[in-house]
Design a protein around this nucleic acid. Structure first.
Lengths: 236, 236
DNA sequence: CGGTACGTTGAGTCATATCAACCATAGTGG
DNA sequence: CCACTATGGTTGATATGACTCAACGTACCG
């Protein structure tokens, strides 16, 4: 009953256009996914899966934003990445057949499709172009992880914060008034940068005095991209 | 001529046994690799490839140890991982078709096989089991990268150094007298941990006073694994 | 024998974490 | 409707881990 209230998203459309990953599937394969997939909705704060659990499928994001994070030994979150519409999460665990190495929590209410592991595995086996695309995706993420490691190991908190702001601009964009199109708590920002909440607050307000950003609670307006680039030492 | 002086390694043997990756290939595929591959030798300090360059193939390590690292914007190395016999490097760039995001430098004299990109790509296309294994490898490395990010972001240098020592024990083992089977400069250790050389020196000598290790130049003798585990807060 | 690379130690500095207090906001329940 | 509580944001004071700089020791190498 409930399923009729919620219009099931045009997943084949979503798949073919949004997610670069699905455009290599043929009609039959897309039909199979559409048949097997399960549509789900989550609200901010809800958890899709947690670190250490065994995963029975992966998620394709239709709307909303999800944060993927690890929990350090003292309980502090380290945000690894964000997933937005068109992207998939949990595929790492499915493909490596390991337990989840991260947890996933909703940042902005989302609609997702849950697709059973076997589908992904069978696609890898039957569609070599698709397998290659998945490899590209995984290898690309690996490259990004390597950069992130180097940054955290070598840059100051100040540099990293500037860099993360730019990364968020790149990934989520700005609205017509240059407000960042993703809204995070200071704590979440700290958990990306890998620092304390108070440090983020202090540095943000420094950026504000330097006319690099404007602050309105969680709304961050980006005033000077060049300035942030300079601070972040972004070009390697 | 020179090639006759150096006995070409039994790469199909090496391939089938050492490298988990190659055991999924059939006779024809192994033959093709053996035909196309190029045997190469490098001495400590030599460079196999550098960050930013386009890669025309990947390397399979037969003997020796190679460090894979990124160069930070101030020229400081961040070691991402070590590659040892049976492992492959540079596959990330080949598969993602991106320029190298790391450099590779010899730590211990090595013999490697260089295998052209096309071979790897064609294997991915023709052998789905192999593609799946590569995916597992990449996804597994991704999981390790995520852990490393969390560690660097949250743990102290002291904790990380202890953890790295344990990781080296795990990956390279101890000899009969409990000496670590890989020899690194203090600077290299620092470049894994993500700290300054002096900090590594100071912490190592603290570990020594605490009877956790014994130091003999680059030879490190591990005396108390449990103690190091305790310091490293290793169990997440 | 001088040169080069590596290792060690000490002293001083600074960025960042920690601790604590306080304010703002919104949701809850009596 | 108002106190109540929880959550998040901010600021200040203080502590300290880790970096930097500098000097010096050591070992190997041609």
């Amino acid at each position: 009953m409930k399923q009729q209230e919620i219009p099931t998203p045009f997943c084949d459309k979503c798949s073919m256009e949004n997610g670069a990953l699905f455009k290599y599937l043929n009609r039959d394969e897309v039909d199979k996914i559409n048949f097997e997939k399960e549509f789900r909705q989550f609200k901010r704060g809800e958890i899709l899966y947690t670190e250490g659990s065994r995963i029975s499928g992966f998620y394709c994001i239709h709307t909303g934003i999800i944060k993927v994070f690890k929990t350090g030994f003292d309980g502090k979150e380290q945000i690894i990445r964000f997933a937005k519409p068109g992207e998939i999460i949990a595929y790492r665990s499915v493909l490596s057949n390991e337990v989840a190495c991260t947890s996933a929590k909703v940042i902005e209410d989302c609609q997702v499709c849950f697709i059973p592991s076997e589908i992904l595995i069978s696609l890898v086996k039957s569609n070599s172009t698709y397998a290659h695309e998945l490899l590209k995706l995984a290898c690309h993420e690996l490259g990004e992880a390597n950069s992130f490691i180097t940054d955290i190991a070598q840059k100051t908190v100040r540099e990293r914060l500037a860099e993360i702001l730019l990364l968020l601009v790149h990934d989520f964009g700005l609205d017509s008034q240059n407000f960042l199109q993703i809204s995070l708590t200071r704590e979440e920002l700290a958990n990306i940068v890998g620092t304390a909440t108070e440090s983020v607050i202090r540095l943000l307000s420094e950026f504000k005095t330097d006319k690099l950003v404007e602050l309105n609670g969680r709304k961050i307006r980006i005033l000077n991209i060049k300035g942030l680039e300079k601070i972040s030492n972004i070009f390697n």
